[in-house]
């Protein structure tokens, strides 16, 4: 849409700033424009396309990542703010096995259809289980209430998170 007047500053490489951060355990150094948001940084600079953007205003959860271990909306952070930070995405968390039980439960319950919300759902589910290993269905629904899924109707996702909780409890020594 026509969104008003031209901003005074225009972006050239001279505005770019060097950042160093850890992404999925690897040290990354890049020059970034201040306005580059984290999702575009992950997708375009690092090829980590498992983090999706959908609403770009923090409402849908498709871009969920971990920043310094905490759940965050990737679209509401600029890459330049993350100098020194530790970012984890679905790719890294899959490779490390951190999400294995949750992913297996989502698969078994078919708690995934188009897959576009899945990364965010898995990360939100895992964050819940880390702070509350035995959540009720209501607590699961509440914890996922910031992640939009148009396909599943949520029921299977709730089932899957409950299954993953049981599986984690079973595996605990």
């Amino acid at each position: 849409m026509g969104r008003g007047r031209l901003p005074r500053a225009t972006f050239g490489m001279s505005d770019a700033v060097a950042i160093r951060l850890t992404v999925n355990g690897a040290r990354v150094e890049r020059l970034v424009a201040p306005r580059l948001n984290l999702v575009d940084f992950l997708r375009d600079e690092l090829g980590l396309t498992g983090t999706h953007w959908s609403c770009e205003h923090g409402a849908c959860g498709a871009c969920t990542v971990l920043i310094d271990g905490a759940l965050a909306r990737g679209c509401l952070v600029f890459a330049i703010q993350l100098d020194g930070a530790n970012v984890e995405t679905i790719e890294g968390l899959t490779e490390s096995g951190a999400l294995a039980e949750v992913q297996a439960a989502f698969h078994a319950r078919n708690a995934v259809q188009c897959g576009f919300c899945s990364a965010g759902m898995l990360l939100a589910a895992d964050a819940l289980l880390r702070r509350n290993p035995e959540p009720s269905r209501e607590q699961i629904r509440a914890a996922l209430s910031g992640n939009y899924c148009r396909c599943t109707g949520y029921h299977a996702i709730v089932d899957a998170v409950a299954d993953a909780a049981r599986e984690r409890a079973r595996r605990k020594p």
Binding site: R43, G47, L48, T49, G50, T51, H52, W53, T89, I90, E91, T94, Q103, F106, H107, A108, N110, V112, C114, G115, F116, S118, A119, L122
Partner: peptide, 21 residues
């Protein structure tokens, strides 16, 4: 039967249009 192709989506390895380079 669970969907074999869903594992890829759950691993963040979907290939949606915007993922093409």
């Amino acid at each position: 039967v669970p969907r074999p192709n869903a594992k890829r989506l759950l691993a963040g390895r979907g290939q949606y249009v915007d993922d093409l380079r």
